[in-house]
Simulated scan of single mutants.
Amino acid sequence: MLILKKGEKMLSFLSSSSLEDNSIHASSDDNELLDAYSQTITQVVEKASNSVVQIKVIKKPVQNPNPRLRQPQEAGGSGFIISSDGFIITNNHVVSNAERVEVGLMDGRILEATVIGNDPYTDIAVLKIYTDTLKPLRFSDSDKLKVGQIAIAIGNPLGFQYTVTAGVVSALGRTLRSETGRMIDDVIQTDASLNPGNSGGPLVNSKGEIIGVNTAVIAAAQGICFAVSANLTKYVAGKLILEGKVKRAQLGIAGQVVNLSERMVGYNKLSTRTGVYISEVIADANARNDELKRGDIIVGLNNKAVASIEDLHKMLNDELINQLVVVQLLRGGIKKEVSVLAGELK
């Protein structure tokens, strides 16, 4: 027991044996917490691993003056089974331009796969294999995700099969630019480490349910990785399985975001301070868009405000194909409305 010197304030002290006892209890509690976390991860991996596949792709030769670069190229990635009859989800960039696709199952079987459909605008693709005894993963409702909840990635990074990394959901509602230049909406940010080869693999929650499809990393950063959300993936996969593609509407224009002057905003009573400047009207697009002029600034579509190209992308869904849409725009600084028959984006 410590003894205070004369004049010092009395404090409550514990004996060394009490401190040791508390340390033991704290250590025991920490071990129990670690065990609970570890048990969650191991149970998820045991449940989900059999549904994760390794994908090997032989790419079609590319046109190149160098003969060596004209040879078929090998690529690889990950995927996961979503139905007992053999439908598999992966990334579009994994299987795009594929001449042959092979799928490796955890039990050692290697099967040839058929590309059912791919969507470069969301980087999602669906494959099909023909075999039995398949165990699919279930989709969660990604709209119910919370920042901070456990996120577990399973895949085949750099050729190392069935690698597991764990982290948390770092952020929700991100946007990510696809290979087409179009923005992918509703993207999940996570710190579960991803590497080349993880692409197309599942990001799952503590129940082993799909919350996203691992798709991208920021090379210069640490712990910033992205996954296409489960709800968007489920929608796109359904369209690909039923129709072989995801249909989208278009106005047949090329444009860029521009700032609007205070005078334009105030005079026209606009709710946004930016719009989409039409730099080109594509005459041969399958849309009747002759009412649009180069130099127009789109600020609305069907009376919904448009502040960016991404706003237009979100609004131009398959329901607007071959439909007459009303475009609110600024021409000469004055707001007016024109009608356009939206076409289908090919």
Rank of each mutant, 00 (worst) to 15 (best):
K335H: 09
K47S: 03
L260Q: 07
N214T: 09
T233P: 04
T90K: 01
G7D: 10
R100W: 11
S18G: 00
G275R: 04
Q73I: 11
S271K: 15
N322F: 10
S12K: 13
Q250F: 08
P61E: 03
R174Q: 13
P72A: 04
A26I: 15
V236I: 07
A220G: 05
L292P: 02
E209N: 07
N322G: 14
I224L: 06
F80Y: 03
D290E: 15
L312N: 13
M183Y: 03
A283R: 04
D141F: 12
T165K: 11
K336Y: 09
M264I: 07
E310A: 15
L158H: 13
A237Q: 04
Q39F: 04
L270D: 00
R182D: 07
V57M: 08
E102K: 14
S193R: 04
V276L: 14
L4W: 13
S16F: 14
Y162F: 14
N289I: 01
V169F: 05
L105P: 10
L19A: 05
N156T: 11
I334K: 09
G244K: 04
D132V: 10
R331G: 07
T233A: 08
I24T: 12
I81K: 03
I188S: 05
N322K: 15
L194H: 03
S170K: 05
V62Q: 15
S18Y: 12
G77E: 05
L301W: 12
R109Q: 08
A153N: 11
S28Q: 11
E112P: 06
V327A: 09
F139H: 05
E74G: 10
N231C: 04
Q43H: 02
Q222C: 10
L260Y: 01
N156V: 00
L14T: 10
K56T: 00
R263N: 15
K346M: 04
N198A: 01
I81M: 02
D35Y: 12
N66Q: 02
N91L: 08
P61Y: 03
T114I: 01
C225T: 07
T190K: 02
N205W: 09
L34E: 12
